[in-house]
Structures are given as structure tokens and as C-alpha cells.
């Protein structure tokens, strides 16, 4: 009898160990421990044993039952732990389902990046209308009366006003700088603000030239402001665009609305300043003009140039995006071509 019990126990433990699924495990349980299972049929023989042996064998049978129950449970836990919610094969290489994704124009993206950086330093964002007058586009900005940019081969004058002068001669704005005078007139000084936008130039287009393109201008006006503080504006832009500290240098440059004026170069990121093809072996790349507002510009904005000074920078957004993304044709920006635009997320 004891032998029978032990044999059954061993058989059952074997079967549990072999069970590869919850179903076979359940079959094993029924076969050995079920109501009509082997343990029951062995226990039925218990009554035929002498009393002293009956008690001993009964205890043994109980132990076996407990042992097997534990083994069953342990095996069941193990099987659950191994189990997947999915039957059969699952191809993990099938691509995900994309969230519906539109995107902002790459120029807008760049513009917002820069707005955020300047916002963090307390700059306002100002936006000027796209049609302006010769007064704000040129006169207020210290462009000499006969400056070539005033002519129709350079600027898009509006029909009907092209032969007027000053406030009566209207055009698509040729640059953003006129906006600075508008803002300063309205808000006074001290002031710090950026004014991004689209500007227009009447010229033939090719991969590097567009009739409509985007600029980003920032101006800070304060008392006793040295041009040596202007680097802040330059670095704010370049560090944001390139994601790291960029070396810059300011050198002599001429623009009517600044005095002194600068060409601002950044150290070539490709060669680190040693000189390479990208920087034409100079080690520096011209990125933007800048300078102190010309006294005549401050006067146009009703500010006393002896009291107020400041610093402008003006950067071409198209070119920044081209540098950051590798776009090689500036005309793509106005193409409205979704194959192009959808690449920028």
C-alpha cells in the first residue's frame, strides 16, 4: 500500500514536471487527485488495513496529497509566468501606427525657436505689416535719397504710388528694419524686442535668391549701451540654432541704419576655425550684419541719440534653416510642396 502510494506520487510528480500547458496540468490533477483519481482509489483501500497501519498510511497519504497539490500550484504559477497574452507568432518588426501628424513650416519652426530664446530674456515679439512706405522703409533708416535699393529694380512698389515719395510711396517691405522705428515710436525706450517676418526684393531667382524671404531682427535700446554688449543677441541666436556655444567675431561692416556697423561671423563648425571648403578656408562664416542704431534712426523714432544707444542684429531665416537642415534651394520654402514640407517635424 505504501509502495503504491509512493509509486503514484512519483508518477504524478513526473507528470507535473512534464506538463507543458495549463490544460495538461489540469488533466494531470484530475488523473491523480480528482474525485475519481488514483489517490482516491488508493485511499479506498485504506479501510482494509489494520488500524495501526491505517493511521500511519493515512498520514502518509495526506502528506503525499499536500506535496502533490503544492507541486501542481508551483507548476501552474510557472506556466502562467511563461505565458504570452498572444497565441502563436507576433511580428515585432511591423511598423507602428503613426499619430496623425501635421507640422509647422520649417521657417516657422526656426522663428518660434528663436522667439522662445529671446522671450526667456525678456524680449517682446513685434510684428509689422508687410506693406510699408518709403518713409519707414528707407527715409527713417538713413538710406541716402539716391540709394539704389529705392529703385524699382530692387523694391516692389505698389502701382499708383510708385512715382510718389516718402510716406506716400508704398511697397512690400524690403527689410524688417522699418519695424524698429514703428515699435520705438509706439513704446519708447528702453526697449528690447524681436520682429521676425517676410521681406521682398525684386530680383531674379535661383537656388540662392528669392523674391520673398524671411528675416529675423532683434533690437535692444538702452542708455549708455556699448556695442560690446551686442554679442548677446548674436550668441542667443546661434546657440539656439546650433545647440551649442558658437564662437563669434564682429568686424567692420557698412549698413546705412547702423553706426558702427558690423559683419558678424561665426567660427566654422565644420573645421573648428582651421579652414575648410565650407568656410572657404577662412575658418569663419559670415552669418549676419549688426550694429548700433544710427543716430538718424533713433531721431526718426523720436529718441535722443545722445541719451539712447543699442544694438541691432538681422539674420536671414531661410539661410539659417538651410544651414541647419541642408536644404539647398531657397525656392523650396514658398513651393507649398508637401513632399518637402512634411520632412520637417
Amino acid at each position: 500500500m505504501k509502495d503504491k502510494l509512493m509509486t503514484m506520487r512519483d508518477e504524478c510528480l513526473d507528470a507535473i514536471a512534464q506538463a507543458g500547458s495549463e490544460q495538461t496540468l489540469e488533466e494531470t490533477r484530475l488523473k491523480f487527485l480528482g474525485k475519481k483519481g488514483e489517490l482516491t482509489s488508493i485511499l479506498k483501500l485504506l479501510g482494509k488495513l489494520p488500524p495501526e497501519e491505517r493511521k500511519e498510511t493515512g498520514m502518509l497519504a495526506n502528506q503525499v496529497k499536500n506535496q502533490l497539490t503544492e507541486a501542481l500550484e508551483a507548476r501552474e504559477q510557472a506556466l502562467i509566468a511563461e505565458k504570452s497574452v498572444v497565441d502563436g507568432e507576433f511580428d515585432l518588426t511591423v511598423p507602428g501606427v503613426m499619430p496623425e501628424s501635421g507640422s509647422l513650416h520649417p521657417i516657422t519652426q526656426m522663428c518660434y525657436d528663436l522667439n522662445d530664446a529671446f522671450h526667456s530674456m525678456g524680449f517682446e515679439v513685434f510684428s509689422e505689416d508687410e506693406i510699408t512706405s518709403e518713409l519707414y522703409g528707407f527715409d527713417h533708416l538713413n538710406f541716402p535719397p539716391a540709394h539704389p535699393a529705392r529703385e524699382s529694380m530692387d523694391t516692389y512698389w505698389l502701382e499708383g504710388s510708385e512715382n510718389e515719395t516718402g510716406a506716400k510711396r508704398l511697397c512690400l517691405r524690403p527689410h524688417l528694419t522699418g519695424a524698429s522705428v514703428r515699435y520705438l515710436k509706439e513704446h519708447g525706450a528702453p526697449a528690447r524686442f524681436v520682429y521676425p517676418g517676410r521681406v521682398y526684393r525684386n530680383e531674379n531667382t535661383d537656388a540662392r535668391h528669392e523674391r520673398a524671404f524671411f528675416q529675423y531682427e532683434a533690437l535692444i535700446v538702452d542708455r549708455d549701451f556699448s556695442f560690446a554688449s551686442g554679442k548677446l543677441l548674436v550668441k542667443t541666436i546661434l546657440d539656439k540654432v546650433f545647440g551649442r556655444d558658437v564662437d563669434v567675431r564682429m568686424r567692420a561692416g557698412f549698413f546705412p541704419f547702423v553706426e558702427p556697423g558690423f559683419e558678424i561671423d561665426m567660427k566654422c563648425l565644420v573645421c573648428g576655425g582651421k579652414g575648410c571648403r565650407v568656410c572657404k578656408h577662412v575658418g569663419w562664416i559670415e552669418v549676419m550684419p549688426g550694429g548700433t542704431p544710427h543716430p538718424n534712426v533713433l531721431k526718426a523714432a523720436s529718441l535722443d541719440p545722445l541719451e539712447w544707444s543699442g544694438f541691432y542684429i538681422n539674420v536671414g531665416l531661410d539661410r539659417l534653416v538651410m544651414m541647419r537642415t541642408g536644404v539647398d534651394d531657397v525656392r523650396m520654402f514658398h513651393s507649398a510642396d508637401l513632399r518637402f514640407l512634411s520632412q520637417f517635424k
Binding site: 496623425e100 501635421g102 507640422s103 509647422l104 516657422t108 523674391r211 514658398h334 508637401l338 514640407l341 512634411s342
Partner: peptide, 12 residues
């Protein structure tokens, strides 16, 4: 970002 539109620029 929410409605899934692509921004475009065209000439004025």
C-alpha cells in the same frame, strides 16, 4: 500638432 495640418507659405 492637434489637427494634423501642414503649414504652407505661398507668395503674396
Amino acid at each position: 500638432f492637434r489637427a494634423g495640418f501642414q503649414e504652407i507659405f505661398t507668395y503674396p
